[in-house]
Write a protein that binds this DNA or RNA. Structure first.
Lengths: 243, 243
DNA sequence: GCCGATTTGTCCGTATGTATC
DNA sequence: CGATACATACGGACAAATCGG
């Protein structure tokens, strides 16, 4: 847990913005001022502010200053650009998460699975089906494929809690990045059953497929998350770069 | 168009990765090597590499090096984290875009619209309905709300081409950032009609709602993009930060 | 319109820490 | 242990945009 200085400053500024210490549409104190308050170098401060820009919290204007453009998001929303487990995201939004494991098994991937997951044919994996509840409503049906070689000792009990916590804390794995694709797909009978949906109402759903890599550069996880369409919300802030 | 050095290096490295100059899963030349090849400072090079990390092109490993993890995306995909017009994105992917304007009108926003768009009641806006085709298939039905005060002189002719090009080139507006929310919504009869869909097949669609800001900090655009579900694809790379 | 002060943007050189091999 | 590689941090210099007098 070695916190970098810029990380601390980033979090402090972020929290000040969220709690209205700086008013919406107003300018933050200038770089020079903030450098003095934090007693850091210009680069370090600018690094913290840079993060706030990509978060969509502030907008910098050369010659003018840094404007607070943060507005709280109304409902529960997943944030893009970060990797968060379901549990982490739920707790951050003040909800009560709960996970039930529908299936815990292991096998070697066949041709068809190889194509969708990206694992080579024959790779030994754990295959887990999990249902994620938020405040007792089933929201997400997850199909997890974990590379057995990279995630040894995975059990149903771990899957009921936080797999990521096990990987990071017990196996000392460092999770680095995750490539995700969002699509809309037809709802299956399995989806209907577990998510309490009726195909005559919504007949499709939001699907997020992700490939996750660890610090050894190996893709150790492929997951397909099938979201209840009426609760699905994905938030993003995009920055325009010079073309 | 004053090009920053780090921008040039970023683009050069990106292009080298895309064209397999560096092999997949292999290490890039070390920082020190690249500093010498580009004749730049360490900070500048790191800035370029940092962009590649957020793009999901490479992954850096302290003590080891920088690994190429780029894999080309199969189909047409919208990329998250950047603001691109439909035209820009289509051309980048080697397709032929075409836009038809279904409706071009102006009015003041009422209470209901104020809630969804975020514009105050009574704000004067241009309201435009556009249908975006890719290779002659209608893919996206767009509802644009442009703040009249910030986008004067908008016409149907401009809307048929690129509105962003008009705003940036003619009005000298600088587009800064865009907050987007992706959801899944029921398909309406309007959607069915223009996107050639049948509600007995898919009865819902992907909806991307966005609020876009310019460099004056004013939200000048609210857009709701309704995507054909079978063609919708949104790509994202997420980075795990120390918790 | 000009000038100077302020503010952010870009870039450099250097020092130190930490992880890997 | 030392060499290599990336991570963090500092301080300084100049450029570019904005604003007020």
């Amino acid at each position: 847990m070695p916190k970098a200085i810029y990380e601390t400053i980033y979090k402090d500024l972020k929290q000040k913005i969220e709690t209205d210490v700086f008013a919406y549409q107003e300018l933050l104190p200038s770089e020079n001022t903030l450098i003095q308050t934090y007693g850091c170098s210009r680069n370090t401060l600018r690094r913290a502010v840079g993060r706030l820009v990509t978060d969509g919290y502030v907008q910098t204007m050369q010659g003018k200053g840094v404007r607070n453009i943060y507005q709280p998001i109304s409902q529960t929303a997943f944030t893009i650009g970060e990797i968060e487990s379901f549990r982490e995201s739920a707790i951050r939004n003040g909800h009560h998460p709960h996970t039930s494991v529908l299936l815990f098994t292991e096998f070697a991937v066949n041709r068809k699975q190889a194509q969708s997951t990206g694992f080579p044919v024959g790779t030994e994996i754990y295959y887990i089906q999990r249902l994620h509840y938020l405040d007792d409503i089933p929201l997400i049906l997850n199909h997890n494929y974990f590379l057995k070689e990279a995630t040894p000792g995975l059990t149903k009990e771990i899957a009921e809690n936080s797999i990521y916590q096990y990987l990071e804390d017990t196996l000392q794995m460092t999770i680095v990045n995750s490539k995700r694709i969002m699509t809309v797909e037809k709802m299956t009978q399995i989806d209907e059953k577990y998510l309490n949906m009726n195909a005559e109402d919504y007949n499709c759903m939001a699907v997020v497929s992700s490939q996750t890599y660890n610090s050894d550069g190996v893709m150790f996880e492929y997951t397909q998350s099938r979201h209840r369409p009426d609760y699905f919300r994905f938030y993003d802030n995009a920055v325009r770069r010079s073309v």
